[in-house]
Nucleic acid binder design. Sequence first.
DNA 1: GATGAATGAGTTTTCATTCAT
DNA 2: TATGAATGAAAACTCATTCAT
Lengths: 234, 234, 234, 234
Amino acid sequence: MPMSARHQRRQARRDERRDELKQAAIEIFHEHGYHAARVSQIVKKVGVAQGTFYLYFEGKQQLFAEIISDFLERVVTTVASWEPGAIDSREDLRDELTRVGLMLTHELLNHELSTAIFFNEAMAVAPELNELIRHFYETLQAMLSDFNRILCQRGLIAPMDFTILASMTIGMVERVIMERVVYGTLNEVEPRAIVDHLVMHFLTGTLEAIGPASRAGVPEDEEQPTDAALPLKA
Amino acid sequence: MPMSARHQRRQARRDERRDELKQAAIEIFHEHGYHAARVSQIVKKVGVAQGTFYLYFEGKQQLFAEIISDFLERVVTTVASWEPGAIDSREDLRDELTRVGLMLTHELLNHELSTAIFFNEAMAVAPELNELIRHFYETLQAMLSDFNRILCQRGLIAPMDFTILASMTIGMVERVIMERVVYGTLNEVEPRAIVDHLVMHFLTGTLEAIGPASRAGVPEDEEQPTDAALPLKA
Amino acid sequence: MPMSARHQRRQARRDERRDELKQAAIEIFHEHGYHAARVSQIVKKVGVAQGTFYLYFEGKQQLFAEIISDFLERVVTTVASWEPGAIDSREDLRDELTRVGLMLTHELLNHELSTAIFFNEAMAVAPELNELIRHFYETLQAMLSDFNRILCQRGLIAPMDFTILASMTIGMVERVIMERVVYGTLNEVEPRAIVDHLVMHFLTGTLEAIGPASRAGVPEDEEQPTDAALPLKA
Amino acid sequence: MPMSARHQRRQARRDERRDELKQAAIEIFHEHGYHAARVSQIVKKVGVAQGTFYLYFEGKQQLFAEIISDFLERVVTTVASWEPGAIDSREDLRDELTRVGLMLTHELLNHELSTAIFFNEAMAVAPELNELIRHFYETLQAMLSDFNRILCQRGLIAPMDFTILASMTIGMVERVIMERVVYGTLNEVEPRAIVDHLVMHFLTGTLEAIGPASRAGVPEDEEQPTDAALPLKA
DNA sequence: GATGAATGAGTTTTCATTCAT
DNA sequence: TATGAATGAAAACTCATTCAT
């Protein structure tokens, strides 16, 4: 059933306005937080009447949930793009981790506001939403656990509790991203450097130096501890 | 200036009631979240009148802030108990990390509700509180960065960006604690095992097996990847 | 920029409703006094919801201030209509005083409730409002002082402290109006008689009889004190 | 029935504390107004506990009423001291008016705070109190009307509506006192000068100059309008 | 589709007063 | 007498949502 051109145009305009409202909402939610955000501020930003809002969204909370949902979907999609198939060595692993890490980082940095909203507000809005978020983390953990198990089977990582490992990995990434997006602490660090640190820490903890990415705080002049100094467990 | 016995008794009763109210508030905040929590629920739980609440606290928000502040203080105090002085080897380091990790874990698990409230709600209450939390993370990061720098100078960890490293460490710990406290995912895992994973991941990433702590998901029977299979960077 | 007919209609309805609410508020404030008056009583009287009130006014206090402000403005406007230009004799003066007096009296009696509210409540609501009232009295006094000064220069009134004179005049008028509006004491006295008394008292104090306006309490039959008996100061 | 010395001492201490509290209340009522005044502020000022207040007064409102009542009584007593007996000439009248006027003025200025409270707040506290005040004004008016009637019978003042005259007189006095006590406008004017103006205005309106008391605003250098210029009604 | 006026439920907080100690 | 902790009623105001135009 082909739609009429007229209907299509209408639909396009509808979608456009919907996006406008959603974008405005993201900005307002980011600025004030969910609870202090007012629907009146959102519609004012777009320049439409209060009632118009409800032509496009069921309500404030549903819109917030949608924003969070969009965000979660982007993250899952990105992480799911992992391709374990061709990974045969630790080099391959590092490269693949770096690839996915960069994708994820770019994704999150490209949607800074949503990212910040997610970390700051999402858990404090409504029980239903918490369910959604819980489900997201479960999915993520399952995916990572599975990956890790595969890697372990291939002898690429040591055996351990992969659920805990998954949590640790998620936490590392999350916190680093938060620092950058929410607080701006790591703004002057290249995303690449961040990803390098994440990947290397996953691979070798604090065993290996991460050279070129180093910045302030690294004792450059001082004699670097040699690898030899690192007593690897037999 | 010795207080009269009468005054002392009064003060003691005052403190007791204050604690009662605070504890009730923690439970209510945990159950409903800050915004859905009602002062009326708190006083009902303690069995006092509405007005009594305001004899002990300036208001709902101030009480919440105090609860969070208590929490943050406990964490900082615990982390600050780190003693880098006598650490001369990676073994020492592992032991000290384990010691502090266990303390912190116990601390957090002993105040599960506050911990959960902090992770879920704290950022979504009020800008002033966000300031406090921001300051907390800055303190924590500064402490960890300094530790890492010392460790590096002693050749115990490799050089890298210690700010990023600090964030990663904080994130790892946070996420694992959250999983346990907020979602109950890791409830059947011994705190000791959790700490072992955190410490080992900090030290060697995924290079080394964490044996006895292993649980579901770990391919016990399968041939373990040997250390030899792990290509350490030259 | 001509407004659409639709917009005009809306605005008209808006103004109407606003007036309705203000009028209801005047009645409630008059009946209960500012502090005992409830917003709920006001909206009930008009038959709208509680929230509607706040579409038209910032709050209870702001509405009260507006009512008082309206009142003060009417008074000042009336008093400012004084025309000293053509006054050359005491007869002229008496006529002009009578004219302005009647206008003011009518104005106040036409807004009895506001007048009563002003005298009873206005000073006990808020410091900001007291400022406004203070300014009102200052304006009034300045106007009257100036008038008196002009009259004195023309030889129509004797020299004295015109600030005190202004205060006395204001007080005379106020009290007489209060008696009538707040207490209903002088309800059966014609406004004209009231004004005659005010004017004559301003002009000659208790020197001259005010005949036809006399009512109960005046010893009609008794021998009137003759003017001769009045020892005018040399 | 003679009280024991012990009981007397107790009663004295009681009265003292009661007065202390009342005085503190006057200051607080003056500073904040009745509605914004807090019982807690009053007891704090005296340095006793909250409960103590209720050992001496039934409550906030009753105390306020008592303060107002004290005030009204002082005024009535003063005005009632009028002695019309020996007044046979306008000179006598002027002297007696001046005497009473000075007494009243001193009375009010000696209790500035109560006076200010009365004018600003008294009508806006409670209906019962308004009754009291109404009664006060009725008493005052009756007294003045009677006085005026006597004066008229003796040929000392012209016939007119003595109720209106009483109101005018009360208003004149009130307003002048208010200006001084509430706003401080006439602070640099001698009480004596104020009373002179009041008395002269009562006697001759604006017919006669009030010389030595004149201050700023009086055209001293300019030719004074002569009495001859004042066309007295035949 | 768009508007924006109207709705009204819902909650924190204050403070005069009481009363057990 | 004095204390001060406890009481609890009471009210202004907000804002998400609706619906007649």
